[in-house]
Design a protein around this nucleic acid. Structure first.
Lengths: 108, 108
DNA sequence: TAATTACGCAACCATATAGTTGCTTTTTTT
DNA sequence: AAAAAAAGCAACTATATGGTTGCGTAATTA
């Protein structure tokens, strides 16, 4: 079990997905973000750190405030991973049956 | 911290993503899948259970063997979540700067 | 029918994770 | 200059997670 810190692990948490959706619309400070959730500012800050570490979000200091914004480009990596399955779901038919038929005929 | 069991949590694990990619090509038994990894069959079985619980995979008994196959339709849900960001990354410009400018002018 | 194979299930363990509270630093306001 | 606000950092806690080994059961094969 190695310590993972990638986009997939980052979007696994529902709070983090909510944060992503929130700042996608407009850059926000940790306090402003925390107001949308039940948990403390510190908890939100931890999520922001996870998102930062995998570069899903960027930050910009503005006086004593820090604005966090979504790095939409990084989101494309998830899209890239999905790409390999897109071909499959576009030509979906009962794949399992197909495979099992093939296997049966091979045994003969 | 509630116990989650959704597609996003399911694809967070790299081994599970590998399993998904593997059975996307053709339905496989737990033993056959486990051969592709370093961990034990039981560990793989646990991953298969997680994937089953969120309906990302389907199983079909064939004698004493169980063939697991990808439920490509469920994969579309990830695509659906990404949908909301697609509009943003298609019209990407420096959003953060934009927002900060707006906020500055509002203060005046 | 006895041995083997495929697989799920349960118990257990170490580590990761999400959350908390408390403290410090820096910037802004009074 | 003092008080307040914004946010990071550290320590700590409970629970989730990924892994293991061992065992039971059902289907094959010898």
């Amino acid at each position: 079990m190695e310590t993972r810190r990638d986009i997939f692990q980052a979007i696994a948490d529902p709070t983090r997905r909510a944060i992503i959706a929130l700042i996608a619309l407009q850059a926000m400070t940790p306090n402003a973000i925390a107001e949308h959730f039940d948990s403390t500012r510190q908890a939100v800050s931890k999520h922001l750190r996870v998102l930062s570490e995998c570069e899903l979000i960027a930050q910009k200091q503005q006086g004593r405030e820090i604005y966090y914004s979504l790095n939409v480009n990084k989101m494309k990596e998830i899209d890239g991973w999905l790409e390999q399955f897109r071909a499959i779901w576009e030509t979906q038919f009962n794949q399992l049956d197909e495979v099992l038929q093939t296997m049966k005929s091979r045994k003969k």
